[in-house]
């Protein structure tokens, strides 16, 4: 298995893309650390991992927008593990608002969850990865960070910031053999996309060259690639998983 003996930390692992990533990495032999706002939210992901691998994931319930919560989570982690091999910064929020309706509260919450949390998770994770001078960090960005979208000024800005943070961190950490990459999903079937009207849904699909939406599992496969030694010479990259949306 690709990730045998590796320890992987996935934020936002309770549903959607994060859940699919956690299950994929666990299926490839990684020992999983699952993070979400509360441990209860992780029950379903944990159960699927148990059923698939027989291994017990380590659950961490904390608010990623709270810096002290992040630190406490790493202290808790350090009490149990001596190393961290993979970090997937997936936790994110998407609150749509047209420019005139953007509020400071919405801006701050989005930046705290999508940008600040990713940066501080990278900071602590890098300290742990340093011990073996090895590690892979994957930040989940979005195609919207590259092309923008009406009603997503704040969300798109936050996801563009994730790309900048990824590229900068990759430059700092490359000499330490810690790779940092980003994945930019396009239109992916999740609970959020299922809430769109059929007309809106059809409009979105029309813009995809492959003529269909993607699945969370297809995003997870790319994260698996970046987590594993198959990508041992890949760092500072942003890999789109979008069915040709921006070709």
């Amino acid at each position: 298995m690709l990730l045998e003996g590796k320890i992987a930390w996935v934020t936002g692992a309770s549903r959607g893309i994060g859940k699919a990533i956690a299950i994929e990495l666990a299926a490839q032999g990684a020992e999983l650390v699952l993070a979400a706002r509360s441990e209860e939210h992780l029950a379903e992901t944990a159960e699927q991992i148990r059923a698939k691998t027989g291994r017990e994931p380590f659950l961490l319930g904390y608010d990623v927008a709270d810096l002290s919560g992040i630190k406490q989570a790493f202290v808790h982690f350090q009490g149990k593990y001596k190393q961290l091999d993979i970090l997937v910064n997936n936790a994110g929020v998407m609150e749509d608002a047209l420019l005139p309706m953007v509020t400071q509260a919405q801006f701050q919450n989005t930046m705290n969850v999508n940008v600040q949390a990713a940066i501080f998770h990278m900071q602590y994770a890098a300290r742990l990865m340093m011990r073996k001078k090895s590690g892979s960090i994957i930040n989940i960005s979005s195609i919207m960070g590259q092309v923008g979208n009406a009603g997503q000024v704040v969300y798109a800005a936050s996801k563009a910031a994730v790309v900048g943070a990824t590229r900068s961190a990759s430059k700092e950490l490359a000499p330490l053999n810690i790779r940092v990459n980003a994945v930019a999903p396009g239109f992916i079937e999740t609970d959020l996309t299922n809430q769109l009207s059929s007309q809106k849904y059809a409009e979105k699909v029309n813009g995809i060259k492959m003529g269909r939406v993607g699945t969370a599992e297809e995003v997870a496969k790319v994260v698996l690639f970046l987590s594993s030694d198959w990508s041992s010479y890949v760092t500072g990259q942003v890999i789109g998983v979008d069915g040709g949306m921006i070709v």
């Binding site: 350090q78 001596k82 890098a126 300290r127 340093m130 011990r131 700092e172 330490l176």
Partner: peptide, 19 residues
Amino acid sequence: DSIGHLALIAALDEAFGIM
């Protein structure tokens, strides 16, 4: 330098079980 500093912090964290 900055890279050495990161290595040093990681070593201190590990040696003394702190963060």
